[in-house]
Amino acid sequence: MKILVVDDSRVMRQIVIRTLRQAGHGGHDIVEAENGRQAVELVQTEAPDLVLSDWNMPEMTGIDALLTLRGAGSAVPFGFVTSEGSEEMRARAQQAGAAFLIAKPFTPEAFDEALSGVGLVAS
């Protein structure tokens, strides 16, 4: 299983990866991207089984990356891990094809619940 973690903050990517491990998902291969543009490229070259993306990033936002991927025919499960979790953002994410939105601060339990919803079980 391969998971792409997308965030412009290296520290936040490490926190997301640590939380994945705490939620029992530490056995997966992890690939990292710094923005949505990189994420779109890595989905094509690395073929991850799941994308966990921040929303607000330079060069290309997470929502734009999701829309680009869906427009290109990619059905990779895509979830947001972001500091904003308003109802408007949740609705926009869902309409764009996101599987879930986890708002910061997050817990291992929130990750486990979201990942089990897309068929990823703890390894």
Rank of each mutant, 00 (worst) to 15 (best):
S9C: 06
D54H: 04
W55T: 04
L120C: 09
S74W: 02
E32W: 01
G117K: 04
I30D: 04
E46T: 11
T68H: 08
M1L: 10
P108E: 11
V11T: 15
M1C: 05
L50M: 07
L50H: 06
G119W: 07
I15M: 15
R18S: 11
V16Q: 03
A75H: 04
Q14D: 13
R21Y: 05
T82P: 06
P105C: 08
E41Q: 14
L20V: 01
L4M: 04
L20N: 03
A39S: 13
P58D: 06
V11L: 13
T68A: 15
K2H: 08
F106Y: 14
A96G: 03
E46Y: 03
L20G: 00
D29Y: 00
G36M: 13
I17R: 13
G36N: 13
R37E: 15
R37M: 14
V51T: 05
T68K: 14
I30T: 10
V31K: 01
V121T: 14
T61P: 01
P48D: 14
E41G: 05
L66K: 05
H28A: 14
F111I: 15
N56Y: 05
S83E: 11
P58E: 09
S74E: 09
T82K: 04
L115A: 11
H28C: 13
E87Q: 07
T61E: 08
D29P: 00
L66M: 12
V51H: 01
S53R: 09
P48Q: 14
L66T: 10
I63W: 00
V118A: 12
A39N: 12
S9E: 05
E84S: 03
L42K: 15
S116H: 09
V16H: 02
L101E: 04
R90L: 05
M89G: 07
T107P: 02
L50Q: 10
E46G: 03
F78Y: 15
H28N: 11
G97E: 05
Q14Y: 01
R13G: 11
S74H: 15
G73I: 02
P48Y: 12
S116W: 00
R13F: 07
E87W: 00
L101I: 14
L52P: 10
G62F: 05
V81A: 07
V81G: 01
G85I: 04
L67E: 14
S86C: 06
D29Q: 09
D49G: 15
T61L: 03
L20P: 00
T19Y: 05
P108F: 06
G36H: 11
I17Q: 13
A91H: 03
I17V: 15
F100N: 13
D54M: 08
F111E: 10
A65I: 12
V76H: 06
R13Y: 06
D8E: 12
I3T: 03
G36D: 13
Q22S: 12
V51Q: 01
P105F: 06
E34L: 10
P77H: 02
